[in-house]
Amino acid sequence: MSEAPVAPRPGSADAAGPAPDGRPDPLLTPPRVRTGWRMLPTRVVAMCVVELQKLRHDRTELYTRAVQPALWLLIFGETFTRLKAIPTGGTPYIDYLAPGIIAQSAMFIAIFYGIQIIWERDAGILTKLLVTPTPRAALITGKAFASGVKALIQAVVVIAIAAALGVALTWNPLRLLGVAVAVILGSAFFSCLSMTIAGIVLTRDRLMGIGQAITMPLFFGSSALYPVALMPGWLQAISKANPLSYQVDALRGLLLGTPHHLALDYAVLVLAAAAGITAASSLLGRLAR
């Protein structure tokens, strides 16, 4: 005597199948896992959001980092505007300086970003991230663009201070969008440079020493404080190889309307960011050992 068939339980594998209209039942059919290049954008955005969530718990960094650019504009900018010691082609020096201070403050935020990834290594967080399906390039890109968003917040503060001091800035939305892109790309490069150095030196103390050793040469070896034409020949050569110079040129051209080379500036910033992501991604495994 044959046994009566047993009806499948709701939610079991036997119950899975198409809905009455012929389409797969979303409650019973698991979603397909994204693989390859399709998962990269979502993973990058997820990593960026995770990094930015830290600002909700501690906003002290944003307040303290606003002090230095304010001092540069209030003291250095106002003083040299009165002295008229640096020729800027008819542009008031404080106006000329403001885009350079935006780039400087963004670089100073990003250049020590490698300390955070070393801390994550020491806390065991980095090892957990590396065993997930997330590609290393997505991890680095997410962190790099989170650094860019932090720098963008800092740029808004500097622009507000500059506007309060009477700097003649543009308020064209398209130009301000270009400013945001330049700030994010420049910060992405410098944060990746920091993470690359972290993958080489492996310790926070060494990274701090190297970071402090390269920040001021990068800053003074750019067009942030004075025109490139005033530099000696050897410093002009360094300035042309310095991504900060191209970021400053783009910011100055967009915010003040001075002569610029936007196509070259953005091309250099994109290539620098891509090279930085590639280098930092290749050393991420070494850092986690």
Rank of each mutant, 00 (worst) to 15 (best):
Ser2Gly: 14
Ser2Lys: 14
Ala4Trp: 07
Pro5Met: 06
Val6Tyr: 02
Pro8Leu: 04
Pro8Glu: 08
Arg9Asn: 12
Pro10Met: 00
Ser12Ile: 00
Pro18Ile: 10
Pro20His: 01
Asp25Gln: 05
Thr29Glu: 03
Pro31Ser: 02
Trp37Ile: 14
Arg38Val: 15
Met39His: 10
Met39Ala: 13
Met39Thr: 11
Thr42Pro: 08
Val44Lys: 00
Cys48Met: 14
Leu52Ser: 00
Arg56Tyr: 03
Thr60Ser: 12
Thr60Gln: 08
Arg65Thr: 13
Arg65Lys: 15
Ala66Thr: 08
Gln68Asn: 15
Gln68Lys: 09
Gln68Trp: 13
Ala70Pro: 04
Ala70Gln: 02
Ala70Ile: 08
Leu71Glu: 13
Leu73Asn: 10
Leu74Gln: 13
Ile75Ala: 15
Phe76Glu: 07
Thr79Gln: 15
Thr81Ser: 12
Lys84Tyr: 13
Thr88Tyr: 05
Gly90Thr: 05
Tyr93Thr: 11
Ala98Trp: 02
Gly100Thr: 05
Gly100Asn: 05
Ala103Pro: 04
Gln104Pro: 04
Gln104Arg: 10
Ala110Ser: 12
Ile111Asn: 03
Ile115Thr: 14
Gln116Met: 14
Ile118Asp: 00
Trp119Ser: 15
Glu120His: 11
Ala123Met: 13
Gly124Tyr: 13
Gly124Gln: 13
Leu130Val: 14
Val131Ile: 15
Thr132Arg: 04
Pro133His: 15
Thr134Val: 15
Thr134Arg: 07
Ala138Met: 03
Gly142Phe: 04
Ala144Tyr: 00
Ala146Arg: 03
Ala146Gly: 13
Ser147Thr: 06
Gly148Ala: 03
Val149Ala: 09
Lys150Phe: 04
Ala151Tyr: 01
Leu152Lys: 03
Leu152Val: 03
Val158Lys: 02
Ile161His: 02
Ala163Tyr: 01
Ala163Arg: 04
Gly166Leu: 02
Leu169Lys: 01
Thr170Asp: 10
Pro173Trp: 00
Leu174Ala: 12
Arg175Ser: 11
Arg175Leu: 12
Arg175Ile: 06
Leu177Lys: 10
Val181Ala: 13
Leu185Glu: 06
Leu185Arg: 08
Gly186Gln: 09
Cys192Arg: 01
Met195Leu: 07
Thr196Leu: 07
Ile197Tyr: 03
Val201Leu: 06
Leu202Phe: 12
Ile210Tyr: 02
Gly211Met: 08
Gln212Phe: 14
Gln212Met: 14
Thr215Lys: 08
Met216Tyr: 06
Leu218Lys: 01
Phe219Pro: 09
Gly221Ile: 01
Ser223Glu: 09
Pro227Cys: 08
Gly233Ser: 10
Gly233Val: 01
Leu235Ile: 09
Gln236Ser: 09
Pro243Thr: 06
Ser245Leu: 06
Val248Ile: 14
Leu251Gln: 06
Arg252Tyr: 05
Arg252Lys: 07
Arg252Ile: 03
Gly253Val: 01
Leu254Asn: 10
Leu254Trp: 07
Thr258Val: 15
His260Pro: 02
His261Gln: 12
His261Phe: 06
Leu262Asp: 07
Asp265Thr: 08
Asp265Lys: 05
Val270Gly: 08
Leu271Trp: 04
Ala275Glu: 09
Ala275Tyr: 03
Gly276Lys: 03
Ser282Lys: 14
Gly285Met: 08
Arg286Met: 11
Leu287Asp: 04
Ala288Lys: 09
Arg289Leu: 13
